[in-house]
Amino acid sequence: MTIDYHPNSNFNKRLVTFKIRSSKLLNIMWRQRWIYLLILPTVIYFLVFKYGPLWNAQIAFRDFKPLLGVFDSPWVGFKHFEAFVTSFYFNQLIGNTLIFSVAKLILGMPLAILCAIALHETWLKRFRTFVQTTIYLPHFLSWVIMFGVLLVVLSPGNGLVNDVIKRFGGEPIPFLTSPAHFRWVVILSDIWKETGWSTILYLAALLGISPELYEAAAVDSATPIQRIWYISLPGILPVIMLITLLRMGHILEAGFNQIFVLYSVPVYSVGDIIDTWVYRQGVLQFQFSLATAVGFFKGVIGLVLILIANKIAKRVAQQGLF
């Protein structure tokens, strides 16, 4: 490779265009100065309150000793990551975690969207307000309370569901302690509790669609289904895409609070997830470095998935994040 020093070389041209471009860039930036000023406090906030802890999170690569502090604790590289990845139940933990989080996403999301559309479509105004307010309330029930409810509904002794099964001559099913059924209990109870809550967001999105579009559809005498298919759904698609993308980033979060309350020894094999393992191994035994390392592990997986999902979203629907 030779380097061309000729005065009219490409290099100089590029330099010139770079100068022009950068002055253009500066120009644009100057015009947008108010926006930079607007976001400045939040950026500072992020540097202090989000990156500050992340800087401390280097304990994932150290053997954290409180007396030595974060920065003087001995460096151990990937020891904690290894401890997690080579642990006895690693594959099962990842599998269970993925099953729960993916199932909650692909079963829960369409239902929430459906509810939002139904609420948006209905003509009964009072009914809508009532339904809307009611279905979002279960979000406030803690999982401890939900466990009590599930016990009443599902107990093989005197639970409602099993009463019905017994009445039809069936054998009672111990839903909460049977490995064959436990995953469904987790997934469906999560949908039960959270669908109403996630409906809010889609409803807000539906309300952001310009009424003119619906008026035009009415003029063209579109059927309700057509209206939903060609106006409502495309109207909230950006939000749906965004939420799917973000959920991809947290694919290894399967709902610690729920599992921790609902699971029991007989269903560990189908219920134990990464976070419950970390709780038993890390937090209870003063292994904060390990807990932080697992957090990073989840972040890396999330990062990879969100990058892929972003690519796909951009290509398919021009709806990427960056």
Binding site: F49, P53, A57, V70, H250, T292, G295, K298, G302, I306
Partner: peptide, 16 residues
Amino acid sequence: LFTYLFSPGLIPVYLL
């Protein structure tokens, strides 16, 4: 987004 993906966990926040 980076801070969304990587959560530092309890202790690093507590220290800060």
